[in-house]
Simulated scan of single mutants.
Amino acid sequence: MPLNSLLRLLLLAALWGGSFLFLRISAPVLGIVTTAFGRVMLGALGLLVWLAIMRVPLRFSGRFWVVAAIGTLTSGLPFLLYSAAAQVLPAAYSSILNAMTPLMGVLIGGTFFGEQVTPKKVLGVFMGLGGVVVLSETGPVALNATTALAVAACLMATVCYALSGFLTKRLISDHGTIDNRAVAFGSQVGGVIVLAPFMLWQSYAAPLAWSQVGAEVWVSMLGLGLLCTSFAYILFFRLISEIGALSTLTVTFLIPLFGVLWGWLLLHERLSLGYALGGGLIMLALLLVLPVFGRLGRSLAPRPD
């Protein structure tokens, strides 16, 4: 992997790991709906500006509403669920649980989309679920009904991400040549559409005292929407074009490391053996499920002349 691509991969992991830090700062102050809506709105605006600068045509081949509907799963619901979890769980917890997305993909793909499920993948899924149990039982946050619901919210978000991947391929990628960057923008618009009614209701029923919102919350929201969403998508698609989708998946292994690091450095979250045990099991599970390291190893191995 070229050095520039490696640096971009690390930056992408740092940004997506940092999203859980920003959520932990913003969600307890702004609330679940406002945080999620603000993220998709800023993400959509940032991507719109970028697409205009790059002169990427917003052509959806008559499938805009399909893209927007899938955006409910790629942006709206996951951002809402992670915002809810951020009111209870440390940033490190959510970032580690986010790594369950490929494992959920195995379950969903095998159950609903006819994907081949090998014994190795099944073992990986159970190992990953075991990692969730270990993290919940041994982490620095006491396990009770509230934290259990927050963990469940994170896992439901990974289900949304995994399901959206299959639906995007079946309903969008296989039905035309819509630019992936336009799909990214459309997904954020879909998130805005689905969350807007809830945002309007909350603004009416429980208006927020905006004058009491501190500067760190505003900075966190800007970071969440513009850096961790808009700019992260730019890096993501740049990496796919440079090193391929499979190699870009290695970011999944790096996000929890940055999630734990940022939580420890900036929020003074207490490190725990549970992070190493639970997170380690989930990382081993990913090694079983994702073929990326095996293929990378074969591509880098010496070849006979």
Rank of each mutant, 00 (worst) to 15 (best):
S5D: 11
L3A: 15
R238V: 02
V217R: 02
A157G: 08
G131A: 11
H175A: 12
D174P: 03
S220R: 01
E269K: 04
L103G: 08
I193H: 01
R181A: 12
C154Y: 01
V133W: 15
A91D: 11
S83G: 12
S26T: 13
R270G: 07
L7W: 13
G17K: 11
K121W: 11
S187F: 06
V141T: 15
T250C: 00
T229M: 08
T229D: 11
T248N: 04
L89N: 08
R181K: 13
G18F: 04
E269M: 05
L51S: 14
V134M: 15
S230M: 10
R295E: 14
E269R: 05
G279L: 02
T248G: 01
G191T: 07
R24W: 04
L107M: 13
S61L: 04
L227F: 14
W50S: 11
I172L: 06
G165S: 08
A52P: 00
T168E: 06
R270C: 00
A150L: 00
T146G: 01
L167N: 09
A196D: 01
V192Y: 04
L21M: 13
M100H: 01
G46A: 12
G109N: 10
A145C: 00
L200T: 13
T35D: 10
T248F: 01
L12R: 02
G280H: 11
N144W: 05
T147W: 07
W218C: 03
F113N: 01
Q202G: 00
I108R: 10
I108C: 04
S94M: 15
S5L: 08
L3D: 00
S211M: 06
I178L: 03
I108W: 04
L249H: 02
A13P: 15
A182H: 01
G114R: 02
I240A: 01
P304N: 05
P57F: 09
L254C: 05
L284C: 15
I172H: 03
L97I: 12
L58C: 07
N180R: 09
A86T: 01
R170C: 01
Q188N: 15
L58T: 03
W50P: 09
L80G: 03
G43D: 12
P57D: 09
L58E: 01
R59G: 13
